[in-house]
Design a protein around this nucleic acid. Structure first.
Length: 882
RNA sequence: GGGCGCUUAGCUCAGUUGGUUAGAGCGCAGCCUUCACACGGCUGAGGUCGGAGGUUCGAGUCCUCUAGCGCCCACCA
């Protein structure tokens, strides 16, 4: 009859102990704990995942891969500590914890950092130089390097960054299995990403389209809707006058904040119910300066309240323009290039009709080649000169869309992009969101709002270099035209491929970019296209199906709330499309870390203190304590005072443990059956309640509530129980009352250390090592169970400890009030109270007398309750009261 | 414009199905060189729970309204 390792047993023996080996001054050990135990855990494989475990025995975590090109800040420490606390709890509860670490090293942030760090820029037209070495100092003018060389530099720098990160995580005490580490750019991740893409393609879930796309002109890449943010920017309404094409009637006036897009105007729109413009609907007006005939049309999105009630539609000024352009079937007249400058155009040609091409050309030539801003300034002057501007521009502040990492407003350009069909999945995705267990639960609203608000499919292309390439080529016709509709896809066993250097089956390298040959897809996947399959990458979807079957779907996705619409959403999408399941059962959303002044942290504001400095200043356990005090999902301020409290707790654990273990002495400690004294039984009963509460809280991902309870118990254990029992524990080990004290002390200490282990992994491990066999890590011990604390002398309801602690406190108060030492003798102590409480107190009589230095204790039944403390006379000067 | 969260002691926050005098830590004040701990301990002061109304024997807790703060979503030229 063997019970599975994870089935809790009702009563279990305490872990095997050895005679304590106690340090002189435990607090002296504090500052070296991280290095010592991090090394020991690595050497002993304490957190190594045992892959023989079945799915039911495994607890799998989809760790967020931090962006290595960024800096780790205290926010990372905060949320990763939360996850680690849960991981440690699950591990001690008998689960085999799959806890990998990933590095998010692909994508724009890395490119940016490499460009600055080495002083290079990527020029894809250059050939690979195998002997290339970057200059020792970054040159003033960036050095052009080939794409393969550039990617090599990215790999080199991220490898260095990853080591720095790993050191920090080890110092913090994350119980990660480092042998499971992966990077989002490594072979494994590229293989999984590309296989995922190939399958999506085969399943018809991705398509490419030439479409208006949000575009960052500085990064030179498309940006997905999820990466947008709006910033309030000053602008101005310019009221422009459009004469009617037939020369009749009054001019039509519109207001725009972007007059520079006037040459791209393709229509005006008004609301269909707006009577003011009814007579003009369907008629044409002429654009100022360019004299292009454009129709005045109607669309429900036009707001009669806005501006003049008529809007100018340009290709493309904003997303509304795209909607109007698409739904009204308008022509395309693009002026803006991908570099953010107006491109040269020839007026009078098809698509650029004008009733006055010469004037149009003259005006336009002054704009071509200029940036949006420059063109704006110039065209306003032109409009003034032409008398087309009505009145003065009216300043406003309006929201403008930016790429979240970008510095200039996004533009909309037409380009070819890959999209995942997410729009048809909305209902499924909403259902999955409901199935998922959210911690805290209200975070589901963020997800729901995002899914319900989807208006476009998910763009996964980026026109960049360092990332996972799309594993496709296209045939080039004999006429030299690339046929994007018939992508050439490699077989899965060839993956990963780089289509810009690898050659599709059946072709020769010489046929690259030649008529009758092939061309590579030049783009790479968006970071989220790879991050959306972190469970598959870490779990071995491609390379290790056996492992994958043991860890997927995973248990936990920990992440911050700002990336629900990106990382969480896309991961759900991919799991649904590939596996028809949720990627995990639970998601734990952490809050932000705020500056001490409660502003959101930002690099620009100079949040200069690095996490390592906090760790060095206060110790890892102390910083973890601060983190674990933050409620799930709640923004939390950096609070060094709280870290100091954590440090004090860590020191208290060391000192109190040394004290308790010192009382135990060298003799073998009896088991729970020796607990006979009511006071000892009472402390264990209270501890059992704490165990139950902490267990329930941690199982529900509420680490902070668990810590609150454990911490509170520990302090009262030190203040009251240890004080009451310390004299008795010193007695003859053969005496039953002494045996009771020693058994209770050992048991209570063992249980409390285990309760604290997920929060303070270093000091608890240190103390554990004093009285357990070498190599017996507390982090592989069983999580305590209330059953361990069941003792024969259970004293439910008598409140022995509670009453004794209360009276002891009264004695202390009397001494404090009299400005006497706590060692001062009490000649007589009288307690007037209910009989039941007196009975409870009587059960701890001798302990109370010892702890309070009380000579005589008188118990009087009566009311009102009172505690009368008569201190002995103060001893003569200099005498000791011993 | 819609949605979510928050508002409790000077500060940071607990308060889980409504139930006796509302809790903790920090800070503050006072005391104690105590033989586990001065990187300490003990004791204490401090709050009409944002505001108004309602339900109830009873409301920090439930309902309605309202104010302020924060965040998310949205096609406002």
């Amino acid at each position: 009859m063997e019970a599975p390792a994870h089935t809790p047993t009702a009563t279990v023996a305490p872990p095997r102990t050895v005679p304590p080996r106690l340090p002189e001054r435990p607090s002296d050990l504090l500052d070296g704990l991280e290095a010592r135990w991090a090394a020991a855990w690595e050497a002993q494989g304490t957190y190594r995942f045992d892959r023989r475990a079945t799915r039911e025995q495994v607890y799998a975590i989809d760790t967020p891969p931090p962006t290595v090109s960024g800096n780790l800040h205290l926010g990372h420490v905060f949320s990763y500590t939360h996850t680690d606390t849960v991981a440690r709890f699950q591990r001690m509860s008998g689960k085999e914890v799959f806890y990998p670490m990933g590095w998010d090293d692909n994508g724009l942030p890395t490119e940016r950092r490499v460009q600055i760090y080495f002083g290079v820029r990527c020029d894809p037209s250059l050939p690979y130089d195998p002997a290339f070495e970057p200059p020792a100092e970054p040159p003033d003018v960036p050095l052009a390097v080939s794409r393969p060389n550039f990617v090599e530099l990215c790999n080199r720098l991220t490898a260095e960054d990853e080591q720095v990160f790993e050191r920090l995580w080890r110092t913090l005490g994350l119980s990660v299995d480092w042998s499971l580490a992966y990077a989002t750019i490594d072979d494994r991740a590229r293989r999984a990403s590309q296989r995922g893409f190939v399958r999506l393609l085969a399943g018809g879930h991705v398509y490419q389209a030439e479409a208006p796309t949000l575009w960052d002109v500085d990064f030179g890449t498309a940006v997905s809707a999820a990466e947008l943010e709006e910033r309030e920017l000053p602008g101005a309404y310019h009221r422009l006058r459009f004469p009617r094409a037939d020369g009749a009637g009054p001019d039509v006036e519109i207001e725009t904040t972007r007059p520079e897009l006037l040459p791209a105007c393709v229509a005006l729109v008004a609301h269909p119910d707006d009577g003011r413009f009814a007579p003009l609907v369907g008629r044409e007006v002429l654009t100022p300066l360019f004299a292009v005939p454009v129709p005045l049309l109607t669309h429900p999105l036009a707001d009669p309240e806005k501006g003049t009630g008529v809007a100018m539609v340009c290709t493309f000024g904003d997303i509304t323009d795209v909607v109007w352009w698409r739904e009204l079937g308008l022509p395309t007249r693009i002026v803006l290039g991908r570099d953010g400058r107006l491109e040269p155009r020839t007026w009078g040609e098809p698509g650029w009709e004008s009733t006055d091409p010469a004037a149009a050309q003259q005006h336009y030539d002054e704009l071509a080649g200029r940036t949006v801003r420059q063109a704006h300034t110039r065209i306003v002057q032109q409009l003034v000169d032409a008398g087309a501007l009505v009145g003065e521009p009216r300043p406003v502040t309006h929201p403008v869309k930016f790429y979240e990492r970008g510095e200039r407003p996004l533009e909309i350009v037409a380009s070819r992009q890959w999209f995942v069909r997410t729009l048809p999945m909305r209902e499924q995705l909403l259902r999955r969101g409901e199935e998922l267990r959210w911690h805290p639960p209200h975070m589901v609203h963020r997800y729901r709002a995002w899914v319900e608000g989807l208006t476009s499919d998910w763009n996964i292309s980026r026109q960049r270099y360092f990332g996972v390439p799309f594993p496709v080529w296209y045939p080039v016709g004999d006429d030299g035209v690339v046929d994007f509709d018939r992508p050439i896809v490699p077989s899965e066993d060839r993956l990963p491929v780089d289509p810009t250097t690898d050659v599709p089956d059946g072709y020769d390298e010489a046929a690259r970019d030649r008529p009758g040959g092939f061309s590579a897809d030049p783009d790479i996947m968006d970071t989220w296209a790879t991050s959306s399959i972190t469970p598959q990458i870490a779990g071995g979807w491609v390379d290790d199906p056996d492992l994958f079957g043991r860890v997927f779907p995973m248990d936990l996705r920990p992440q911050a709330h700002d990336i629900i619409r990106t990382w969480l959403f896309t991961t759900v999408v991919r799991a649904e499309l590939e596996h028809h399941s949720l990627p995990w059962s639970d998601v734990a959303i952490s809050g932000w870390v705020l500056d001490p002044d409660r502003k959101k942290m930002s690099k620009s504001k100079g949040n200069v203190v690095t996490p390592l400095e906090f760790l060095e200043r206060h110790g890892a356990d102390a910083v973890r304590f601060w983190a674990a005090k933050g409620r799930p999902g709640t923004d939390t301020a950096i609070d060094e005072a709280q870290m100091k409290v954590g440090r004090r707790l860590a020191i208290k654990v060391l000192n109190a443990s040394r004290f308790a273990l010192g009382r135990l002495g060298e003799d073998p400690v009896p088991g729970a059956e020796a607990v006979t004294e009511p006071l000892d039984a009472a402390v264990l009963a209270a501890l059992a309640t704490t165990v139950a509460q902490a267990t329930a809280a941690l199982a529900d991902y509420d680490y902070s509530r668990a810590l609150d309870g454990v911490e509170a118990f520990f302090w009262s254990f030190c203040d009251d129980y240890l004080e009451l029992v310390k004299s008795r524990a010193y007695g003859d080990p053969g005496s039953p009352t002494v045996a009771s004290a020693r058994a209770a002390l050992a048991l209570a200490l063992s249980v409390q250390l285990r309760l604290l282990a997920p929060f303070l992994p270093f000091v608890t491990e240190e103390v554990w090592s004093w009285w357990h066999e070498e190599g017996a890590s507390i982090h592989r011990e069983r999580w305590p169970e209330p059953g361990e604390l069941d003792v024969a002398a259970a004293t439910e309801g008598t409140g022995v400890l509670e009453v004794a602690a209360e009276i002891l406190s009264e004695v202390r108060k009397a001494k404090t009030t009299a400005k006497r030492s706590m060692r001062a003798e009490v000649a007589r102590l009288e307690v007037v109270d209910e009989p039941a409480r007196l009975e409870a107190l009587a059960a701890a009589r001798s302990d109370l007398l010892e702890a309070g230095h009380v000579a005589e204790l008188v118990l009087t039944a009566g009311s009102p309750t009172a505690v009368i403390v008569e201190l002995a006379d103060e001893p003569a000067d200099g005498a000791k009261t011993s």
